[in-house]
Design a protein around this nucleic acid. Structure first.
Length: 480
RNA sequence: GCCCCCAUCGUCCAGCGGCCUAGGACGCCGCCCUUUCAAGGCGGAAACGGGGAUUCGAAUUCCCCUGGGGGCACCA
């Protein structure tokens, strides 16, 4: 099995395209085949190096290693269409010579007008084929006179193209609805249909796994392949990813670029797992599974036919699951840079010790890694930012003074500053003052962390250290 | 307008003629745990779009309707 992912560097790597890449990769790995990465960069206008790099970065981040293709090379290089232009011209010339393609001199304006007229009359809007019957001598003459011309495929008429799609089974198109489409533009450059198809033939692709948006272009690709005298590959058209509104997922739905998930604190394993669940399932009612397990079970023909809505909440949940599964050291290694960036400084040895104490606590309560700074900031800054609402709802209450005073006296006398002893001291305080845990402890939490929401209190105090904890309690008490 | 594809809880999947009074996951609701927030545990509400046909029997097969999606470029 030889499959390919052939993005066009005209935009950032999109999650929908990423899922297509994943399915290609899975199919290759499952079958022991070859996964090829090709760059469909015939569009000089919109393509850019930035997009190209973004695509490579994204695939690398996810670990979707390709065996052959751009950057890594291979027996069929080059794998960038912009470097294969001669080959497309060669194929086009050959098709023209074999009379499987012909020159068309119709101008864009003429075509547009006829298309509109056809549509208005309810006829298929495609090219009407009028240049197909031009005399060879006339064609030669107009070419000689440098009249602009495109090359079109002479689609067999009447006719039908039928193929067995791996996910959709039999699909059929009457050629009445397949126009004599353009192979070569008037400047001699190849269209997507030509370039992509020639590459699939040349690279000996066995299975074309791509988005459903290309389903209706497939007869064109099969026709080109046959005109080249080659056998078409198997096609597997994967349904599209939809936004919450049920429309094709696009920029308008917000973060659709893969890199925004990476930057947003998502783990590659979680993204892979989630994407794998969109249109495919592990079976056994399991929704959490490793990439290796996916490879073991993946089959192209198990892919779901209907489009899937991308559910951010479920991805978020899943990412939380993966975060909790991280080894502590790994978790620290991934979140430390985020915290340091937030603080605007690197961790000191003491900072790292402090962070090691709270890391396991925050690890349990995060959905994305980028939440880390907010959760631990109070430990590393000297001027805590007090949340207005928290101050009003907790510290402004009469019992706050009582509880802070009690905590202050109990904690000042504490010898060993660890969470167990701190808890013991504060519980004694609660009993003595007759306060319940909520009333008695929340003021301490707010005084220490600045917020009503924080990691567990006793551990937080332990991590903060005795001196600084007492300083904050005293400071807040003084301000009441 | 024309062509193609699709159709199970709000969402993602399971189901491939009887095991279905339709199962799991996210989300939602309730309870428990609990110093907050999470996490975790337990429970709950929630779907086979409609109509025909085949069959002893249809979520599962066929047809029509409806609905949704995609495509109709000298873009990819």
């Amino acid at each position: 099995m030889r499959v390919r992912f052939a993005p066009s560097p005209t935009g950032f790597l999109h999650v929908g395209a990423t899922r297509t890449a994943l399915f290609n990769w899975l199919a290759a790995r499952h079958s022991g085949g070859v996964f090829i990465l090709r760059s469909d960069d015939t569009d000089q206008e919109r393509g850019s190096d930035e997009f190209y790099a973004d695509i490579l970065d994204g695939l690398n981040w996810l670990g979707l290693q390709w065996d052959e293709g751009i950057e890594v090379g291979g027996p069929y290089e080059p794998y960038r269409q912009s470097e294969r232009l001669e080959r497309y011209s060669e194929v086009a010339a050959r098709l023209a010579a074999d009379e499987k393609a012909y020159r068309c001199f119709c101008t864009a304006a003429e075509l547009d007008e006829r298309r509109k007229a056809a549509q208005a009359e309810g006829r298929p809007p495609g090219y009407d084929g009028r240049c197909r019957t031009l005399e060879p001598s006339e064609v030669a003459g107009r070419l000689e006179a440098n009249e602009p011309a495109v090359l079109r495929l002479a689609v067999p008429r009447p006719g039908t193209t039928t193929f067995q799609d791996v996910v959709r089974e039999e699909v059929s198109f009457d050629h009445e609805h397949v126009e004599d489409f353009v192979l070569l533009r008037s400047d001699g450059s190849p269209t997507y249909h030509l370039a992509s198809t020639v590459d699939d033939v040349d690279f000996e692709i066995t299975h074309v796994v791509r988005g459903e948006d290309l389903l209706s272009s497939t007869p064109k690709h099969i026709l080109i392949t046959e005109a080249m005298g080659a056998a078409p590959p198997a096609y597997a058209h994967v349904s599209l990813l939809l936004g919450p509104d049920g429309r094709k997922l696009s920029k308008r739905h917000g973060d659709t670029a893969l890199h925004s998930y990476r930057n947003g604190g998502f783990l590659p394993e979680a993204v892979l797992n989630y994407l794998g669940l969109l249109g495919w399932s592990f079976g056994d009612d399991e929704s959490i599974f490793s990439t290796a397990e996916m490879v073991e079970r993946f089959e192209l023909d198990d892919i779901q036919k209907n489009p899937a809505v991308f559910d951010n909440d479920k991805l978020l949940w899943m990412n939380g699951v993966y975060i909790r599964e991280l080894e502590l050291d790994d978790f620290i290694a991934r979140t430390r840079p985020l915290v340091e960036a937030d603080l605007g400084r690197e961790f000191t040895v003491e900072d790292l010790e402090t962070y090691r104490l709270v890391a396991p606590l925050i690890q349990e309560r995060m959905k994305v890694l980028t939440e880390a700074p907010d959760q631990v900031r109070f430990l590393f800054v000297s001027d805590v930012a007090y949340d207005d609402a928290a101050w009003k709802k907790v510290l402004a209450k009469p019992e706050a003074r009582v509880s802070l005073e009690g905590a202050l006296s109990r904690l000042s006398d504490l010898g060993e500053w660890v969470s167990e002893s701190i808890e013991g001291a504060l519980r004694e305080m609660l009993a003595e003052l007759g306060l319940n845990a909520s009333k008695g402890l929340q003021p301490v939490r707010v005084a220490i962390t600045g917020s009503r929401i924080s990691p567990p209190l006793f551990e937080s105090l332990a991590a903060l250290g005795k001196e600084e904890s007492l300083r904050r309690l005293r400071d807040v008490f003084g301000r009441l």
